[in-house]
Nucleic acid binder design. Structure first.
Lengths: 165, 165
DNA sequence: GCAAGTTAGTTTAGATATAAATTATCGAGG
DNA sequence: CCTCGATAATTTATATCTAAACTAACTTGC
């Protein structure tokens, strides 16, 4: 039986009343992400027998149009290069992506979806989008718009101050 | 040299103008979490030579007071039991936590911080909190309060509709 | 041209994660 | 009592991920 993560105590459970709001925001952000991620991961497995990182990688390639280098994939998925190498190896073995030489830089390689990869993603994408929609069905449109805006502010703040050394 | 993740194109880069707002919220949520996580992970390594999951586990134990079972740790950190077993093994080997028998259920084991574990966490916690504060320094207090509220709404929505099968 | 530093990708070693199978114990109903 | 389904933790197999070392190719400044 699969545990139902959705209803059990989470990171915030022991949150102290006097915790700083910054910490609370961070813990709740992490809780939301983990909840959605776990749900998507489990559904990708049961519906399409694939994994979240593989789906994410295919999604980036699909959006990019004519391929991305390994480095671009790494920056978009925010993971290390070694990780991308492994994921692309696996997806190439499944015949969903292919490595092509880069036109002007022989160090680089352009990763592209194969026809099979494009078909596979096209089948999954709308279903995946419905899962996300359903999980956010409890929020109003105005709330989502405002949440998107505030997350944008947070992203800017982190990039401004977090990355500075 | 460590890549500076903070300024490169992320998941949203290829976001279509007509993407549904639900998908945009999810991608931006993931971007924020990944950014903060990468920063905290890197700093935990360079400042304290430890990792994020270990720090998280210590934090939960510290907040809990008199110990948590393996299952409770799993639900709070939202990871599977097998993962917790490995983390507790590692932390126990470092002498930061210990397994004690459960008073009324011989299947369970209560995990507690050792004195050394408590000291280690006490040293890291305030520094960790300053990192989080700094990353959110670009936001106003009212914005954070509203963000916290909206994330709460999202959490409720996911728990309501996501977990339902 | 060409040495020196940089960048793209891979490899390696080890840590973290899942899912599924297993073991031990619990708890309820007969 | 005692069997049977449920639960707690671990084990196993495999996938994902990081950090750091490495290789090959690029670029810059002279």
């Amino acid at each position: 039986m699969r545990e139902n993560l959705a209803r059990l105590p989470d990171r915030e459970s022991a949150s102290h009343r006097d915790d700083k709001i910054e910490l609370k925001v961070w813990l709740r952000l992490l809780t939301c992400t983990s909840l959605i991620e776990a749900e998507v991961r489990s559904r990708l497995r049961s519906s399409f027998d694939t994994t979240l990182p593989r789906f994410d990688l295919l999604a980036q390639l699909d959006r990019a149009g004519d391929g991305l280098t390994m480095g671009e994939l790494g920056s978009r998925l925010m993971v290390t290069g070694g990780n991308i190498t492994g994921l692309v190896d696996a997806l190439a073995a499944e015949g969903l992506v292919e490595r092509a030489p880069h036109a002007r830089d022989r160090r680089s390689r352009v990763i592209r979806l194969t026809a099979k990869g494009r078909r596979a993603f096209a089948k999954m994408a709308p279903v995946h989008e419905r899962w996300i929609d359903a999980m956010m069905a409890g929020m109003g449109r105005a709330e989502m718009t405002e949440l998107l805006r505030l997350l944008g502010r947070l992203k800017d703040s982190v990039r401004q101050t977090g990355g500075a050394r």
